[in-house]
Design a protein around this nucleic acid. Structure first.
Lengths: 153, 153
DNA sequence: AATATTAATAGTCAAAGAAAGTCAAACAAC
DNA sequence: GTTGTTTGACTTTCTTTGACTATTAATATT
């Protein structure tokens, strides 16, 4: 049974695809009405599925004629991966955040689903069954190392 | 009297056969209800009868609209990769041996050069900058984890 | 014109709800 | 008596909802 959040996510993405644009403005209440849900549900969808690390950027304005603008970041692969390696990931990264990044670069077509799954396997909690320096630190190293293949290979 | 676990196992397998598919999504509670048992019984069945080495792969998600996805693996490269995972690699593997395995599976066309490079990056010495002599142990875990992707994709 | 008021938006946060996961104790089969 | 099964209490994760807050634009008032 599809979750509402998933449906809304797809809806927004289709709107963008159909309009062949990387920028979309929505009306929160209108959208909520369309799906017959609480307006804050829209915020939930945006904050879980249209985050920076998934390649989206949100701007909004309240008041009369307010709106939510969703912008899909156009990411030259190299600089995006570079950003991930040199800025975003840092010295430590949680499994959840790493997974999000992976989902994002797969969606962008930067890695194949299988490549993504390989990386996922490497950085998941089970594999990193390491004490000593914290798990997240080892994960960050591993992850960056694998990502660098994408821009050097 | 047939054990409940066996009955559930058969039930799931029949569902897949009947639907003529190798992928099935179930609702844990629903299934438990159907058999009038504790939900965790389903986990037991899955974890004892639908394991990787038996050719199944499980993915799940919690929360509203959660599910358990059971995937039946195809048996082509499975036996070879299975051999690597369950027999060859064992609890520990050196970097050199791991590299050899990788070269081998690339040559066989089981992984692409890039996939191989990704794995190489994950298991090389630098990434595994874990103290302790357990480097080879961590490497084995990582490696097997990544390899398992190959027979689940 | 400047300022206050009102209506129209959107944001936040926490509680409730809806799954699935874990673990260990009790139980059964061999 | 050792191994495999069943059960249930507790935990974790993710989603949905709603009450309350904050901001902005439009409008009315001075």
């Amino acid at each position: 049974m599809a979750r509402l959040s998933d449906v809304i996510e797809q809806f927004i993405k289709e709107l963008m695809r159909d309009a062949n644009t990387d920028m979309l403005e929505i009306q929160r209440n209108e959208l909520a009405d369309h799906f017959n849900c609480a307006p804050s549900q829209i915020n939930y969808v945006l904050s879980t599925r249209f985050t920076i690390d998934k390649g989206y950027y949100i701007v909004s304005r309240r008041g009369g004629g307010g709106f939510i603008r969703i912008k899909k970041l156009d990411t030259d692969t190299r600089s995006y991966i570079g950003y991930l390696i040199f800025e975003y990931i840092g010295d430590s990264i949680s499994q959840l955040d790493a997974s999000r990044v992976l989902a994002n670069i797969e969606e962008k077509g930067i890695v194949t689903p299988r490549e993504r799954a390989i990386m996922e396997a490497a950085i998941n909690g089970k594999s990193l069954n390491v004490f000593s320096p914290s798990k997240d630190v080892v994960r960050a190293k591993l992850f960056k190392s694998m990502l660098s293949v994408l821009i050097t290979g």
